[in-house]
Design a protein around this nucleic acid. Structure first.
Lengths: 348, 348
DNA sequence: TTGAAAGCGATACCAC
DNA sequence: GTGGTATCGCTTTCAA
């Protein structure tokens, strides 16, 4: 049986003709609105559905979107390519959550990949066109977030949500879903205090993104509140870790260090050992980011619930899509601390 | 500076009004058609572009698609979820190629994820709606390909391409991009023959999908053509590997085995060793599929250029989208053999 | 050169 | 209950 291949996709008008009813009737039956469909006699309905099957009619989503302004498509725009490095990528887990949740609630995903400027960075607007607007709304992520793009999207009133906090001048409240860095870094300081640590130090990366600010503020506030001391350059804005400060640390009163990255923690570990001090015997260490499965040590570290965040982003986005006037505050997702063997109670 | 957030997205009509021209003029300038745009006086053009910028106008892609029947969106439909297991997935590499190529040629990707039936399998048609038709065309992949879906898509005339060969009754030539299993298995037989092997055996998996047929045909034809012998049950349709046949193999004239999967090869290896024979000293082994990075041995095996195939799929799809009347034959992508240490020349 | 107007396919209001 | 009909935003033909 080799069926003939169809030329033109059938429209509601074709269905209507075949069923001997008006186009509106077809729309009412197809459209799924139970209210409207219910008001149609079973018999007419049956004839229409038969015609639909006969012709193999399927609704045209673009037309629907044009009318309804919605098509159950959610976008995902990453400011850097994701797939190429997906395996190791920081972002991969977010996508997992995004896909999972989208599937659960019956939305499809548009991956905006074409917007490459050729230099690796991706912009939302390409020759004046916001390509995102095929989708009802979009989740944005990436370190290299373009704030101008964000501001413009916000002004356009396009529904979107950003993973990770971003402050954008000119756009008061960018809807974001953010890990609770502020809270968890406070908890970390508290945990250290509970173990008897009074003198802490903070190791800072060279990045000045908002999420780092949150960590620093959370930690700094807690140190103050708990009456601890921290005389490290990191807390006051000096990134990195130099020999001078390592010397200082090795003979100073500090018994615990919070490092923004595993990289820094590794360097710290080497530096301390070179000076005859060990972790956690002499110094406890907590890592805030970048602890992978290939880690050399079981660092006590902060865990970002990426999949959770991806899911939360979809839910928040759908809420915004459903009600664009919604003034969404940022969604804060709690983080947790993964126990490692790099902290200990202070030696008496 | 806190700019006001816009209420309604501006349309061409708004731009036209502001620029003091007609809507068609705006369309001509915006639409990008150089022919049409060229016929518009520089001055008018400038006024229009200014109005566009002033209002922050961006074209509505749904309306465009409705008119033009194209929106530079390509779909990806997987018959099983991909992301959840993406890291290890057989399919992941295909996606890499797909994303890469789509980005290069300026298309965005729609990930059809919402079509889950709840049982893990995904169908194209959900309550009668072909969700794919938001995209200009779609790449389909998956083992659990639903042939009814494929047939229906084909009949509808929807532009798509399937990764992996599939024969669908009722749809003469499903456009597919397929690894050249037929050719490469022939090459494998030849390579073995060149090493002096005259008596081969074939180990078959229990799956009856088209790609397996291709491998079996390629191998079988070559064995015949080269005047080799193969008395294995695998070649004639018996899947698996039982003790009886292992005994047979251990004392028989066979000096080389082609196994459809690493799993089978492993079982073979164990069986042979238990019978005092070794690989490749006594028996050479070539594996056709499933050799991962965690393999216990450096199997001589077939390599599927997955990324290449993904890229080829996009190119083929775009060709079909551009010209739907195109009778696409299947695209065949050559495979290669990865050298391992499981084959050797026949001992004199 | 420029503009009016006819669709593209679906929805919903408003009469009948 | 049912069927015209205006409308969504854009492209393109056809006149002016």
């Amino acid at each position: 049986m080799t069926t003939q291949r169809r030329e033109r996709a059938p429209r509601q008008a074709d269905v209507a003709r075949l069923a001997g009813v008006s186009q509106s009737a077809v729309s009412r039956v197809i459209g799924g609105d139970p209210e409207a469909a219910a008001r149609i006699p079973v018999d007419t309905r049956r004839r229409i559905l038969e015609a639909v099957k006969e012709l193999g009619y399927v609704p045209n989503l673009s037309a629907r979107k044009l009318r309804n302004k919605t098509n159950r498509l959610l976008g995902v725009h990453t400011f850097e390519p994701v797939f190429p490095h997906a395996r190791e990528s920081f972002y991969f887990e977010f996508l997992l959550g995004i896909e999972e949740r989208a599937e659960e609630i019956g939305y499809d995903l548009v991956l905006f990949t074409s917007t490459g400027a050729g230099d690796g960075r991706r912009r939302v607007y390409r020759d004046g066109t916001n390509r995102l607007n095929v989708a009802d709304g979009t989740v944005l992520l990436g370190v290299a977030t373009d704030k101008a793009d964000l501001a413009r999207l916000w002004q356009e009133g396009y529904p979107f949500i950003h993973i990770g906090r971003r402050d954008v001048p000119g756009a008061p409240d960018i809807p974001c879903v953010v890990p609770d860095y502020f809270g968890i870094t406070g908890d970390i300081a508290e945990r250290l205090a509970a173990l008897g640590h009074r003198h802490l130090a903070y190791l800072r990366e060279g990045l000045e993104l908002e999420p780092y600010e949150d960590r620093r503020r959370g930690y700094g506030d807690a140190v103050e509140r708990l009456g601890l001391t921290d005389r490290s350059p990191g807390l006051r804005g000096e990134p990195g870790l130099d020999e001078a400060w390592l010397d200082e640390l090795a003979r100073g009163p500090e018994t615990a260090v919070v490092a923004e990255s595993e990289r820094l923690a590794e360097a710290l570990l080497r530096g301390l050992r070179a000076r005859g001090r060990d972790v956690p015997a002499d110094v406890s260490v907590v890592v805030l980011e970048g602890v992978g499965p290939a880690a050399t040590r079981r660092w006590e570290h902060l865990d970002i619930p990426r999949k959770e965040i991806g899911r939360a982003a979809i839910d928040a986005l759908v809420a915004i899509v459903d009600d664009p006037d919604l003034r969404t505050e940022s969604i804060v997702v709690p983080c947790s601390i993964v126990d490692g063997d790099t902290i200990a109670t202070v030696r008496p």
